[in-house]
Design a protein around this nucleic acid. Structure first.
Lengths: 206, 206
DNA sequence: GTCTATACTTAGATAGAC
DNA sequence: GTCTATCTAAGTATAGAC
């Protein structure tokens, strides 16, 4: 399913499924759990999706497309590579904090463990999603390289650096939800602090 | 089980279980899978552990104790707070790369999803492990604060900064294993690059 | 389109043989 | 101490009613 085609009911199922996958993990979430949380039954779910894995993949795709659409514009625009990198990092963090469940599913998807239990066609879908993910990572690699070219970013291996940055950004989904004390801190302030720590290491101090 | 008391067979089970948990995740790993990989049967496992959750918790504990024992010495010693923080980050990374499976289980444990399906006594064990984890995090917070005091680390909220750093360090376990091209790069070099990116953002540039 | 009833599979855990 | 046989529960998926 491309997200453009998703019906209203499918989106409802994805939203609830994302929350449940975050709460208990993919395996421990039953189709009945998802149905119950919508106030429907199994049959409703199976009418809209072929299997639990399909729901997971749809959530993963939807999440990736949403964050990419939010962050991609910041790769362009004015300023040095470093400045744009910081804007991208912050936009990613704000999106993550406001769509925790989707990001948690992306995180689970990246871990690739489900891959082992997929059918051939589901695996093909996952490969497509991995491409989407690579494309997103490439957005960061590109801006890092532009920063090295304009002298704002110090010399470093762009691929490793991009993964380190994205890993640090995504890891926020682990503790952000677990710490209600932190959650009261305004999203924007918290995103700034984390973005500064993570992007600061890219700066050329020469 | 405290790790001091672990028998040879228990360690063998933990080592194999950690690999399987990494490969397929906790839920999708059966006791039979673990037994088969040791060349034994279910009965062998259940003689040494009461349940699958107990194995998971034991692996989590063992992993946390191992990394703490490796990293803690670097919190002390000579140099500024920033220099010591970098040594800790690098030691953490090297340990992670050389004990991927244990770190992957720690990562799963931190996500707290299993908590929902635990007995009271297992939950109590998990709370103890969370304390161990907090203690480890405090090691980083402490050195960050020392760095702010000696002027090597810029002013920032230590708690958020420590979590951001540790999140970035731990996220390496996601891609390190998935990229055989990177894995050929010497562990030490890769650890240096990642540590520099992550700790660089702490530096006081004033 | 949605619900109910059910078939089927998998795997955690235990009892008892050896 | 380890193995084999078995009980049991849970949950995916489907068929067919409405």
């Amino acid at each position: 399913m491309t997200q453009r085609n998703a019906s209203e009911n499918q989106v409802k199922i994805m939203d609830v499924a994302a929350e449940e996958f975050m709460r208990a993990g993919f395996d421990a979430t039953s189709i009945d759990d998802i149905a119950r949380n919508i106030g429907q039954t199994k049959g409703f779910i199976y009418y809209h999706f072929r299997s639990k894995v399909e729901i997971f993949l749809a959530v993963y795709e939807r999440g990736m497309e949403m964050v990419r659409d939010d962050v991609a514009p910041w790769a362009g625009g004015t300023g040095t590579g470093l400045e744009r990198l910081r804007r991208m990092a912050k936009a990613h963090l704000v999106h993550l904090m406001e769509n925790l469940a989707y990001h948690d599913v992306i995180h689970q998807g990246i871990e690739q463990r489900l891959r082992l239990r997929m059918t051939e066609s589901q695996r093909a879908t996952l490969i497509g999603l991995n491409a989407l993910r690579d494309e997103y990572e490439a957005l960061f690699r590109g801006v890092i390289r532009e920063g090295m070219a304009d002298g704002s970013v110090r010399e470093l291996p762009a691929a490793v650096a991009a993964r380190t940055l994205l890993g640090g950004l995504n890891a926020v989904d682990i503790w952000y939800r677990n710490d209600s004390g932190q959650a009261t801190k305004p999203v924007d302030d918290l995103a700034s602090v984390v973005a500064d720590v993570l992007v600061g290491g890219f700066q050329d101090k020469g």
